[in-house]
């Protein structure tokens, strides 16, 4: 069924929308700040490999991340820095992983956005788009098999990733199993350089919710208020047994696909359209308008975020890189089955 709900009705929201909004806004600020820093490091040649930012998509990401509780499962994708922070990923993780530090969760074995902490239920993504859909579905099935209740899982995908067979198989399975999954599809109108017109032929991706037999929502991804309302509703619905919730958010990627890409192919008119707004500026204006903070206070929060990023970075930069001579070059947990051929 297609759910077009707009009115807030979740507990979380009644319990203090202002606090929720401000907390989400601060996570967005921190996310933008750390990503700007990472981009600067990348342009200075300090980072190996790619650099993928969630700029312009913080509101969508944080709204879902902040609704999750400890014990819930989050399988973030490339543009989910804000959601990661809100769910509890330490700020250290992004910097240690981009810089390939041995101290990071991936120990230099994987980089940039390909990071996570499986034991804390932040699943590290593989690059292959769509793969996390069935992953999180299986994790939710397992918890149900073990008799647990009250948990939800959340993951996200882009307009491009939604064309993969893996995404389709995963979402269909999630719907069949009626697991408590919140799937956010962020339609930022491009997949790398490919526009929606070369990606899918349906009128609106949210229409696919009917085909999958899941509840679907359209959401203005530039408006934090709407994002929080819809994410809160969807997470509550999933938690209360209404099955898979599919949120289709509209916004624009305020960067190239990655930092090597200037996005020259993007339609400039899109940036001037309502969904081309910067969600962070929109949120800031809302905070000031509501009288929840003045410009001075927001500037102070921004400074605090900067200081936090700088302090973290300074520590991380002093930390060791992985040592190839000390590396454990083994891919099996079963140590007795490691082929002696590959022992050295």
């Amino acid at each position: 069924m297609l759910n077009t709900l707009r009115e807030p009705e979740s507990e979380t929201i009644h319990l203090g929308f202002k606090e929720l909004y401000l907390s989400a806004f601060k996570w967005m600020l921190l996310s933008r700040t750390v990503e700007d820093k990472v981009a600067a490091l990348w342009h200075a040649g300090k980072i190996a490999g790619g650099c993928y930012l969630g700029k312009g998509q913080e509101a969508v990401s944080v709204a879902v991340g902040i609704m999750l509780r400890p014990g819930d499962i989050f399988a973030p994708l490339i543009r989910d820095q804000a959601g990661r922070l809100a769910f509890g990923e330490p700020l250290f993780d992004i910097l240690r992983t981009y810089l390939g530090k041995k101290t990071g969760p991936m120990r230099g074995r994987d980089g940039n956005v390909h990071r996570g902490r499986p034991k804390e239920r932040i699943y590290p993504m593989v690059s292959h788009l769509g793969a996390a859909t069935s992953l999180i579905t299986g994790a939710l099935m397992a918890r149900r098999m073990r008799g647990e209740t009250g948990f939800v899982g959340a993951t996200s995908i882009g307009d491009g990733g939604s064309s993969t067979g893996s995404f389709h198989e995963g979402l269909n399975l999630a719907a069949v199993e009626r697991v408590p999954l919140v799937m956010t599809v962020t339609n930022n109108r491009y997949a790398y350089s490919t526009p929606n017109s070369r990606q899918f032929a349906c009128h609106d991706l949210v229409d696919r919710a009917i085909g999958y037999g899941v509840e679907g929502y359209s959401m203005d991804g530039t408006d934090l208020k709407e994002c929080l309302e819809i994410a809160s509703h969807a997470v509550d619905r999933a938690r209360s047994g209404f099955g898979v919730q599919m949120i289709v958010a509209s916004c624009v990627r305020l960067s190239g696909h990655a930092e090597h890409d200037d996005g020259f192919y993007m339609d400039k008119a899109l940036l001037d359209s309502p969904i081309g707004r910067d969600c962070l500026s929109v949120a800031q204006a809302h905070v000031v308008e509501q009288g929840w903070a003045d410009e001075v206070m927001v500037r102070e929060w921004r400074q605090q975020a900067k200081a936090q990023v700088e302090d973290t970075l300074q520590q991380v930069q002093r930390e060791p890189a992985p040592d190839p001579a000390e590396e454990d070059w083994h891919s099996l947990a079963s140590a007795h089955l490691i082929d002696p051929e590959y022992a050295e």
């Binding site: 999180i136 579905t137 299986g138 099935m141 893996s166 198989e169």
Partner: peptide, 12 residues
Amino acid sequence: DAMVGSAIGASL
């Protein structure tokens, strides 16, 4: 794809 993907999640 989803059979194996879900098994990965379940094993986690």
